[in-house]
Structure formats: C-alpha cells, structure tokens
Deep mutational scan, measured.
Amino acid sequence: RELEAFAERFKQRRIKLGVTQADVGSALANLKIPGVGSLSQSTICRFESLTLSHNNMIALKPILQAWLEEAEGAQREKMNKP
C-alpha cells in the first residue's frame, strides 16, 4: 500500500514540477548516490504505473524520494529568490 501511495504521490509531484520521466532518469546520476547512475524513462514509467517487480520498487523508492526532495528544494529556492 505504501509503495502504491508513494508512486502516485511521486508522479503528481513530478508533473507539478514540470519534469519529464526522462529528465528524472538522467537527473538521478547527479545525486551521486553510490551504485546509482541514470535510469531509463521506461523504468520511471514502470515505477509510476506499478509494473516493476516489488523488489525493484522497494529498491527505487529511496532513490526517487531523494531526487524528489532535492528537486522540490531547488524549486523552493528558485521561488524565494527576488
């Protein structure tokens, strides 16, 4: 249940930020998480549509959570600048 809720929230917030699935995939490489490079657009799509295996969903959740927090933080900074 929690994974499904996160996937839905992730998709809504990604769209609100105006970021494509492909952008998310390539931006993950910038997070410098050990062992994590970029991901394909189709992987992000399959995460959002819950068609990845349960284990893959569990593995990707903290990575996508980290990206989302960073992206939303950058958005807030941009909006707070005069």
Rank of each mutant, 00 (worst) to 15 (best):
E2M: 05
E4K: 14
A5L: 14
F6G: 00
F6S: 02
F6T: 02
A7E: 00
A7I: 10
E8G: 09
R9Q: 09
R9K: 06
F10P: 00
K11C: 03
K11M: 07
K11L: 03
K11I: 04
Q12P: 00
Q12T: 11
R13G: 13
R13H: 07
R14E: 00
I15T: 09
I15Y: 03
K16R: 14
K16N: 13
K16W: 05
G18S: 04
V19N: 01
T20V: 02
T20R: 08
Q21F: 08
A22V: 04
A22K: 07
A22N: 15
D23V: 06
V24L: 08
G25P: 04
G25L: 10
S26R: 12
S26C: 10
A27M: 05
A27K: 09
A27N: 08
L28G: 02
L28E: 01
A29W: 02
A29I: 11
A29V: 15
A29P: 05
A29L: 08
A29G: 15
N30M: 07
N30E: 09
N30K: 15
N30D: 12
N30C: 03
L31D: 06
I33M: 09
V36Y: 04
V36F: 02
V36M: 05
V36S: 07
V36N: 03
V36C: 05
G37E: 13
S38E: 13
S38W: 07
L39S: 03
L39K: 03
L39I: 14
S40G: 09
S40W: 03
S40V: 03
Q41W: 08
S42P: 05
S42Y: 05
T43I: 14
I44P: 00
I44R: 00
I44V: 13
I44S: 01
C45Y: 10
R46G: 10
R46T: 02
F47W: 03
F47P: 01
F47S: 01
E48D: 00
E48I: 00
E48S: 00
S49G: 12
L50I: 06
L50Q: 11
L50G: 14
T51H: 12
T51F: 03
T51K: 13
L52I: 02
L52M: 11
L52Q: 02
S53M: 03
S53V: 03
H54T: 15
H54F: 11
H54E: 14
H54Q: 11
N55W: 10
N55I: 07
N56P: 04
N56Q: 15
N56T: 10
M57G: 02
M57Q: 05
M57E: 01
I58E: 11
A59M: 13
A59K: 14
A59D: 09
L60S: 04
K61Q: 13
P62W: 01
I63P: 05
I63L: 07
L64N: 03
L64I: 03
L64H: 00
Q65I: 07
A66P: 02
A66W: 05
A66L: 07
A66Y: 07
W67L: 02
W67H: 02
L68P: 01
E69S: 09
E69T: 08
E69P: 02
E69C: 05
E69M: 10
E70G: 09
E70H: 08
E70S: 12
E70I: 06
A71V: 13
E72T: 04
E72K: 02
E72H: 02
G73D: 07
G73M: 08
A74Q: 10
A74M: 11
R76A: 13
R76M: 14
E77W: 06
K78Q: 09
M79C: 10
N80S: 14
N80Y: 10
N80Q: 15
N80G: 12
N80E: 15
N80I: 07
K81G: 13
K81Q: 10
K81I: 07
K81M: 09
K81T: 13
P82T: 12
